[in-house]
Amino acid sequence: MTLLKEYIVPRLIQWAIVIFIGVSLTFLIPRMSPINPIDQAMGRLTAFQTLSPEATLALRQSLMDLYGLEGNLLTQYLNFWGRVLRGDLGPSFSAFPTTVADMIGSGIWWTIGLLGLSTIIAWTLGLVLGGLAGYFPDRWWSKAVENTLVSIYPIPYYIVAFILLMLFTYYLPIFPLVGGSRGTASFSWSYIGSLVYYGFLPALSLVIGATAFRFIMSKALASTERSSDYVRFAEIAALPKRRIVFRYVIRNTMLPQVTDLALSLAAIFEGALITEVVFGYPGLGYLLLNAINASDYNMIMGITLLSIVGIATASLLVDLCYPLIDPRVRYR
């Protein structure tokens, strides 16, 4: 009960406040711009394609609500919230008349699948490898893993991505160059297999760097943990090394790493821009790049709002899971 009152409820309130402030800022910022985005957007849109009068009207209305300068500030603000809560951000400019919500809805699962999985894989790998290397710093394998990961870590991500792309789609054409899957979506082995096949390279490119990062952190934490009183005591009692490393060392280094996992997961909602562009992967990052190129304000707004809600929610979920792994929070 105290857990609910002292831990869960404050975090829910915090979550709501973060979203409220984020959405309000998204409302305010375009209004500080000296140019009128609506005229600019309408001008650009009508320059490329001819729209029916109704379509133009619908578009203008959505723009008015989202960025509109119609009515007093309060009315504008309320209209804006109305649209946000309905999830109705109007049509995309660049793919008119498909709505922003539909486009995000189709892109987000690709991104969550790719980034979510590779983030979790890299986190687990880095945590375990770092824990082992921190606890057994003198073994040959721990030095080998450390030297490899520490050399990879400073290489900029886009170079890693390009090297993988060149190696495995051009010189050794094992993996596909673009796309997210083959065939129509279904729960068949062949479709799921194609998801893995298409996702492998982009995921690998993400996992390499993220593992190296997690490894370095985790190794430092494990080296400290190694000299803690309870690890020393377990060693003196001659507990098996494997038990000590997992239940005593890594189990304790996990705690700060979980908070950090929240931040990495939250970044998913901005999409892995470079990854998706380099590997032609149809996720949010790809959408965002197209939206920026086409000045698709509705889409940019949609992705911004989604990342606000996504980041806040991911942190909330991790915060709520934290008591499961740290008994000191669970039972006070």
Binding site: D229, Y230, F233, A234, Y248, R251, N252, I325, R328
Partner: peptide, 13 residues
Amino acid sequence: PQGSMHVLNPVRR
């Protein structure tokens, strides 16, 4: 050990 109040693993029952 000395300071044996701190030798119990904090995350283990």
